[in-house]
Design a protein around this nucleic acid. Structure first.
Length: 660
RNA sequence: GCCCUCGUAGCUCAGGGGAUAGAGCAUCGGUUUCCUAAACCGGUGGUCGCAGGUUCGAAUCCUGCCGGGGGUACCA
């Protein structure tokens, strides 16, 4: 039941009687949840602008709207406050009846959308050739949550993992395999060995790139220094106030720039020095001085159908895929289809031909480019060496998705740094093959470390995803064990139970911490914060759930029997009513989540629900209630709370534990 | 240079036209013969980066500026 939507619909009816039709829709949208419980449960703010429009006192308009508003029994007679706020309070009898219906409803009265759409969601998309790392959390977790929510509210949704399984990384491990492989290690643990090879090849390439970069940086340092000196020489006594101000600003900029370039040079210098101190590595690097081009050659051979490279690719894929699968298994993430870059390879030439044929692409500096008016830089679809790019694959992918699923929307859950790419891609797609389709870049910010910079290990390496999960689980385990050592409760948990709780709590902490932040913001990664027992964390939500469930265990209540018993809900205490009202808002929360594809709307709802439950739990004894009627009613509230939390967490991709 | 983003309490973050701007942490104080204290209740703490503008009403929308991050022709 979406109370808000129904109230808006009714308000629309009332508005039609007194306002011009063109103005009616946005005015009806001005019904919202109340800002403050003192104002009731919902409020309508449309009387003020409408009063302005009709040149009538807003309070009069409000009064007329109230008179014409039929809340269909949902609310008490509305009250008018302040300049013309219309405050709506849910009728307790109606509220009770709604929840009573939820007791027997597996969907908790969430009704499927009236007009289902078809969505394709593109998320996670790791590179197969290298281990998944911290950067994959957000896309995977946000994408999975959106997938679940959209599907739950009744849309047709296809999740597609667009794997990076065809790019330069494969050239790198093929090169590594051919030159550096430890055969027994490869036979023993192929993924570990391939990942070692990837890192080794990457390290050598980085070393050579660094050596190429160093002189460039040196000239930059010199140029920056000179720019500073030049500004210092400017005769400031001849300048007026504004020009002086500008000069100071320019100086500061120049100095900042000089400092940052010098810093870069320093960092690179010491990094290269460190590499050069490693005699064995340098020896290896010297023997593979042409590695940069050699890797590209291996990649090109793979793409051209070279028998050996293709065989190696086929050999590498299964173990790499199963390593990735293992991570998804722990995260509880699944995909309907997994169509990586390799799948689209045979379709790229056709895409490029089509673009050229339709006059959308033309050659420039040897590359085939699409120039769109809006953008300063062209979109390159074929390099001058004939190779295709990211953009080409994305275009082929869009076309395939259009042909295969005829989606109404395609969502790309990809980090914000690629927004320019998507702007171009969507602009082109609209004039090319898929006008009218909602193409959305669901962008998200960066996971930061304590220093406010992208989260890295102490040595500056990217953090592997598996290690990250392990760490969270081991910290969760410590918390579980510590809690067990504390106040004895007579319900000791055995080793297996604790291990299971730690796995669930640890991993859900990471997922929830990610989902609870606005996706556009960067956020600081902190095990301590995400595993905290207070505040908006998965641990707290899990605990809230376990605490509800504990009542049923302690009271030896048969929940199914309770639900079918016909026991009546009765709302008496303010805490009961507040909880009830919150329980009935699940559908509103889901709608908000989907409106701009923001899972933090759902976590916020769940946290508020847990909060309402906590107050209820403190103030309203359940098992020791005064009467059997009150007890049953409260048990029903507990059951609905537990189910709503479980359902909500499940929609976020987070399982629950019955006991902690 | 241009484009995109962010700037809210000491810290980490919500709130994205409505009434007195919220939460958690930190800090100060209170609550356990009582269903999980891994909890709850209360206090302290804010010129919502700055300046204009639109509006009956701006943290929220617009413009400019300041500051952080990101992107900007053959990587993905």
């Amino acid at each position: 039941m979406n109370v808000l939507a129904r109230l808006r619909r009714q308000m629309l009816v009332a508005l039609r009687e007194i306002a011009p039709e063109a103005e009616v829709a946005p005015l009806a949208e001005m019904v919202t949840t109340a800002q403050d419980a003192r104002f009731g449960d919902y409020q309508a703010n449309c009387a003020m602008p409408l009063g302005k429009l009709l040149k009538r006192p807003p309070r009069d308009v409000a009064a007329e709207l109230v008179a014409k508003l039929d809340t269909q029994g949902m609310c008490h007679p509305a009250e008018i406050a302040g300049p013309g706020f219309i405050n709506l309070k849910l009728n307790d009898a109606w509220l009770t009846a709604q929840l009573q219906a939820a007791v027997a409803d597996p969907r908790l009265t969430v009704t499927p959308v009236e007009q289902p759409r078809t969505y394709v969601i593109d998320y996670s998309a790791p590179n197969v050739a290298k281990p998944m790392h911290v950067g994959h959390i957000r896309s995977t977790v946000i994408g999975d949550a959106l997938y679940r929510v959209l599907k739950f509210i009744g849309h047709r949704v296809i999740s597609d993992n667009h794997l990076g399984d065809w790019g330069t990384q494969f050239g790198m491990i093929i090169y590594g395999y051919k030159h550096f492989r430890d055969e027994s290690a490869y036979q023993d643990k192929p993924v570990d060995e391939l990942s070692r090879l990837y890192r080794l090849v990457h390290r050598i390439i980085a070393y050579y790139e660094g050596r190429d970069e160093l002189p460039i940086l040196e000239t930059k340092v010199a140029a920056a220094k000179e720019a500073c000196e030049k500004l210092d020489r400017v005769a400031s006594d001849k300048l007026d106030k504004d020009a002086l101000k500008k000069l100071d600003k320019d100086k500061k900029r120049a100095q900042d720039n000089a400092a940052s370039v010098a810093g870069e040079w320093n960092a690179l210098q010491s990094k290269l020095a460190a590499e050069e101190a490693d005699a064995a590595f340098i020896d290896l690097a010297r023997k593979h001085a042409t590695i940069q081009t050699a890797v590209l050659t291996e990649t090109a051979k793979l793409h051209a159908g070279d028998a050996e490279n293709h065989r190696l690719w086929q050999e590498f894929m299964p173990p790499c895929l199963s390593a990735i699968e293992e991570v998804y298994r722990r995260l509880g993430v699944t995909f309907d289809v997994t169509l990586g870059e390799s799948f689209y390879h045979p379709r790229l030439a056709e895409v490029v031909d089509d673009l050229a044929k339709r006059g959308l692409a033309r050659e420039s500096d040897g590359a085939l480019c699409v120039f769109l008016e809006k953008f300063a830089a062209p979109m390159i679809v074929r390099k001058k060496d004939g190779a295709f790019l990211y953009a080409t694959t994305d275009l082929a992918t869009i076309r395939y998705r259009m042909q295969t699923w005829q989606p109404d929307a395609i969502l790309y859950v990809v980090d914000h740094r690629q927004s320019f790419h998507f702007e171009q891609l969507f602009a082109l797609a609209q004039i090319w093959d898929c006008a009218g389709v909602e193409l959305r870049h669901i962008s998200f910010g960066t996971v930061l470390g304590k220093d406010g910079k992208p989260y890295k290990t102490r040595s500056g390496d990217t953090v592997g995803l598996t290690g990250l999960l392990d760490e969270a689980v081991s910290r969760a385990r410590k918390i579980v064990d510590d809690a067990e050592k504390g106040a004895p409760r007579g319900q000791e948990l055995n080793h297996e139970a604790r291990a299971h709780i730690a796995e669930v709590v640890g991993i859900s902490a990471i997922k929830y911490a990610d989902l609870t932040h606005d996706r556009n913001s960067d956020y600081e990664f902190s095990y301590d914060k995400m595993l905290a027992m207070y505040g908006n964390t998965a641990t707290y939500m899990q605990y809230a759930y376990a605490r509800v469930r504990s009542i049923f265990r302690r009271g030896e209540i048969d929940v199914d029997a309770l639900r079918q018993s016909g026991a009546k809900l009765v709302l008496v205490e303010p805490a009961e009513r507040a909880l009830a009202r919150q329980l009935l808002r699940l559908e509103e929360a889901l709608e908000q989540t989907v409106a701009d594809y923001r899972p933090n709307m759902l976590t916020a709802y769940l946290f508020d629900l847990a909060d309402a439950y906590s107050t209820f739990f403190e103030q309203c004894p359940v098992l020791k209630a005064d009467s059997p009627t009150t007890r049953d009613s409260r048990l029903l509230l507990c059951d609905l709370t537990a189910r709503t939390i479980r359902q909500g967490l499940e929609l976020l991709g987070i399982p629950v534990v019955e006991q902690m």
